[in-house]
Design a protein around this nucleic acid. Structure first.
Lengths: 188, 188
DNA sequence: CACTCACTATACCGATTGGTATACTAACTG
DNA sequence: CAGTTAGTATACCAATCGGTATAGTGAGTG
């Protein structure tokens, strides 16, 4: 493994375990068996290292997520795709998912939150367009797409974290249960 | 306001905004118009300051929460009390609630998480006894009280955070919707 | 008055922080 | 061969970190 990849992987693990503020550059260097100038050769700064981790991992996921969010007059089907994309991503990148989770609920003025904020907004915006498209078949969604977008992301997150705590990926059965529960919340 | 209260309030706000690691003792002192020896006269350490904030704010809440968790053969009623206690607490302590939320999903090896962990466990344990008591009337809860306890706390949290983002306390209507949605998840 | 005691500021501590100036090495390139 | 370039370590930087030793202060108390 190249030094760059070594740094990348160790930084991911250490950020996930100690948090962005709690992790030190020296700690990452020690774990990677290199010294600071090497790290700074590959990454602009500590913040740039985090940004790069988010970028390289989230770019392909957002691509899948967008593909899942197309609407063809079958909202349950779209929701299934969205959940499947999310669950699959979390299952393949459990450590990253934990890091993402800590950043997502980090304090608003922390560097960590600033780093993930644009990604959260992008994901939210994509999901919102799905609900806006579904308005044409489900009138009671009108004007609530932002709220339901946030709510769905919350439900997905809750299921993933519960499953990850047990060391598994959410099963298909859980996927359908989560979808049904969410739909129930919408139409009741 | 006494210096102690001044420090306490400023620390709460700064911890909530910047995170435990991101906040510095000097920053809290500056905001409070005092110097470090004064802070260390009232609190053992930076960690002790956070512990004290959690203790003084969560002790009365846990008391209410426990009272809400008594079971008298009416699970929906108990759940309503639990949600009402949680929503009310969040509404009266919005800044603290945000701090609690960041600590709750902080990385496992961070000091912030270590500080709130016992409180989370206590709350979880109390809620679990409610579900264990309800087994006698709802057999399908058997062996799942831990899972449903976590799930309910997740749902409550999601509703509170959504409401707080809009600057409000969750309404009674949202309370009943959240309860119904959760019950639906149980019995389906 | 003499004494105690809760409280507070000045000035400082060693350790660690994120980051870098300099120099070297090995590999590739004309 | 001469020159460039990517990559790496030693040694260092100023700034900040959490925390404290010391010396007061003023209010209460015998």
């Amino acid at each position: 493994m190249t030094n760059r990849n070594e740094i990348f992987e160790n930084a991911l693990n250490i950020f996930a375990a100690y948090g962005y503020d709690g992790a030190s550059v020296q700690q990452i260097c020690d774990a990677s068996g290199i010294t600071k100038p090497t790290l700074y050769h590959y990454f602009h700064s500590k913040r740039g290292l985090l940004d790069q981790i988010l970028k390289e991992t989230l770019t392909p996921f957002i691509y899948d997520f967008q593909a899942a969010c197309v609407y063809n007059h079958d909202l349950p089907l779209s929701l299934e795709r969205v959940m499947r994309a999310s669950f699959g991503f979390a299952g393949h990148n459990p450590v990253f998912y934990r890091l993402q989770q800590t950043l997502r609920s980090a304090p608003p003025r922390s560097e960590g939150y600033a780093s993930i904020k644009p990604w959260l907004e992008t994901q939210h915006r994509i999901l919102e367009t799905l609900f806006m498209a579904a308005v044409e078949d489900h009138g009671n969604l009108r004007g609530r797409s932002a709220a339901y977008s946030l709510s769905l992301l919350g439900v997905i997150n809750a299921y993933i974290l519960t499953a990850l705590d047990e060391g598994k990926i959410p099963s298909d059965a859980q996927l359908y249960q989560a979808r049904q529960q969410f739909m129930y919340g919408i139409f009741s």
